[in-house]
Design a binder for these strands. Structure first.
Lengths: 203, 203
DNA sequence: ATGACTATTGAACAACGTTCAATATTATGC
DNA sequence: GCATAATATTGAACGTTGTTCAATAGTCAT
């Protein structure tokens, strides 16, 4: 038996999250199980339930870490682009790249069903909001004469759109073959949407 | 025991698909199980595996029926709209409505993991292609001077985008609260994308 | 009526999430 | 240093899942 106090609760939590990350990266969301995680970190299932309420919580915390990693990537991308238009485009490409390089981890965010809106914990909601805010900020200079409300709409429409192309393409649901690459689709979406948005402003 | 030849294989298949549809509509994808389906149609699990290779196949066939229903809805929508621009917008709204009214059935299409691209059966791929072709056809008049290649890209970019907004919003992942309604987001996406697309043409 | 054929069953298996009495290990008081 | 309280950890247990397959029940041809 693992000796008591070999690791603190926090340590076990992090070990479990790391193990889950490895398992999911290798076998995907469907390959994840409580027993596999427990075995990997050298504890038994019981301990896992002492530290997490259930698998749901473990998955959500793992997803939060993935959202953090995505945020870091996008932040770094935003730091080294020129104008707003190029920045949005760079963010789109960064999103694709992240999704392609971390397919399973990124996919788990969407394969795992979330509870009802008001049951989503704040620490999770904040992660989502932070990523969206980054897009909103980047979009800001392109929409100087539009209201905050319209900016929020634009950011969500655009980002939802980018995400849609990614998820359909990466899960083989867009029949992309013979049409174009995923980046080409995303670039088309962003390019034309921004054209429309800025034309709007000048009318 | 159910008497032999009470139903043909095809009948049992359809009964199972109908049962699955009801179960999923009520309890969602996670509420679906082979035993529940079997019980509903008055047979046992064994029979289900005589008629379907596995649950995967049952789910994919159910999804194919959902894609058919979606196609019918969109076809009817396209039949009663005026110009191309209005038609694309109507299709977008029809997609949202279908997704909202059949959340669980529509959601199962995306919650259920598809096999590798080349392992997707033709009868499934055709369903996807048919829906996309409808969008492409509707988009056609707006892109007279663009190549078939560009048209394919536009249809996929736009439709992936519409889908992305829907799936994120309906699964509580877009933080829509306080921003705008889903239809508003979709309308923004379509409106601006089409503006950009047609401006492109005139340059 | 008998035998061949097959549709149908239901028990069995391994794996799943989850719980909790039992136990092993440490900390505390004397 | 020893007994006792406290608790970290276990692992068996429960009900569920997808899937398989020997056994059986029902039908058909002769």
């Amino acid at each position: 038996m693992a000796r008591r106090s070999d690791h603190s609760r926090e340590q076990i939590q992090q070990m479990a999250l790391d193990a889950a990350r490895d398992i999911v990266a290798r076998d995907g969301y469907t390959g994840l199980s409580a027993r596999k995680v427990a075995k990997t970190i050298g504890y038994t299932v019981g301990t896992l339930y002492l530290v997490f309420a259930n698998l749901d919580e473990l998955v959500m915390r793992a997803n939060a870490q993935t959202l953090d990693a995505l945020y870091e990537t996008m932040l770094a991308t935003k730091a080294r682009c020129k104008n707003a238009r190029a920045c949005i485009m760079a963010l789109g490409r960064a999103y694709i790249r992240f999704a392609s390089e971390n397919t399973h981890l990124w996919g788990m965010i969407y394969e795992h069903p979330l509870p009802d809106r008001d049951a989503i914990p704040d620490w999770y909601r904040e992660r989502v909001a932070r990523n969206l805010a980054l897009v909103e900020d980047t979009l800001q200079p392109l929409a100087k004469n539009t209201s905050a409300q319209e900016l929020a709409v634009a950011a969500r429409a655009l980002w939802g759109g980018v995400h849609g192309i990614c998820i359909l393409a990466l899960t083989n649901k867009l029949d992309v073959v013979g049409a174009a690459s995923v980046p080409a689709l995303v670039e088309s979406l962003i390019d034309n949407y921004l054209k429309g948005l800025t034309a709007n402003r000048q009318r």
